[in-house]
Amino acid sequence: MAAPFSWIKPEPHGIYIPPADCWVDPSRAVDNALVTHGHADHARGGHGQTVATPETLAIMELRYRTGAEDDAGEIPHKAVPIEYGETIRLKGGVDATYIPAGHVLGSAQILLEHAGERVIVTGDYKRRADPTCPPFEVTACDIFITEATFGLPVFEHPPIEEEMRKLLDRLAAHPDRCVLVGAYALGKAQRVIAELRAAGHHQPIYLHGAMEKMCRLYEEHGVDLGELRLVADAKKGDLRGAIVISPPSALNDRWSRRLPEPITAMASGWMRVRQRARQRNVELPLVISDHADWSELTRTIREVDAQENWITHGREDALLRWCQLHQRRAKALALVGYEDEDD
């Protein structure tokens, strides 16, 4: 019999499963990939075959044109859709089950089972309610491979209702200006819009051109975002008193000059730290994240109660320390190519 868990190998470019010759969220192109969700540091283009939820595959198709034909008129990439709760048998007797991660549309934890051993790769996740995706499900396993993006005790995401209130109050206080919200184009933008609707804001919301397609994709997958318009089609007067959503990178660039005295806001977990907000010239920091904060990370590790925790991208040191202090076995994986999402 093989040594325990010898079928799963953390490598610099992702988690490798030798019997299945398959990678989870590899940071370079491989033949067989299991992808947790559509963010660029987890989903890359160029794989031979990708197993992911239909939503994640649609996102990858939009971003990498993975459905494009080659010169011979064939589609070289093979997309293998898998629904939440469904299990797929890989080569070498490895089973993969996709479980909601509550991070963004289509995001999944991947439960891998082989020889009676269970390993979960979370990708990214959060524990808060999100109107755009089903919630994280706690699932028992032997090895829990968790992210640690906000793995420091200073990170505590406040209830999103408070942040929406801040945003709407500021908008109401400046009826001649607009509030420009920087939000990650996949997930954060749509969640902010959906939460604004839930908070009773039913005016049209204006989008930077780069947000449009992803919002449409969300709508096609049944997420109601209300009336959306493009900044490019609007007159300056229309934008007074309106909320405009753009990618974070557009907050301080030429593009924003067309807006009527924008109040610069940013929706991100990093906004918890004042200097982070200042670095981005943010006047209205909105602490909204699609990742687990410190208490969610530690609570999840407790609830999952795995024999061992492997910690991937983020602030591994601190979460590792917490595991030590609480007598939980843990190690940090040195994965490359994962970046702090603008989140």
Binding site: L152, R315, A318, R321, W322
Partner: peptide
């Protein structure tokens, strides 16, 4: 709080 967690937090902030 744990001194290590304090130092890591302080370095980040």
């Amino acid at each position: 709080i744990d001194p290590v967690l304090w130092t890591l937090s302080r370095d980040f902030v």
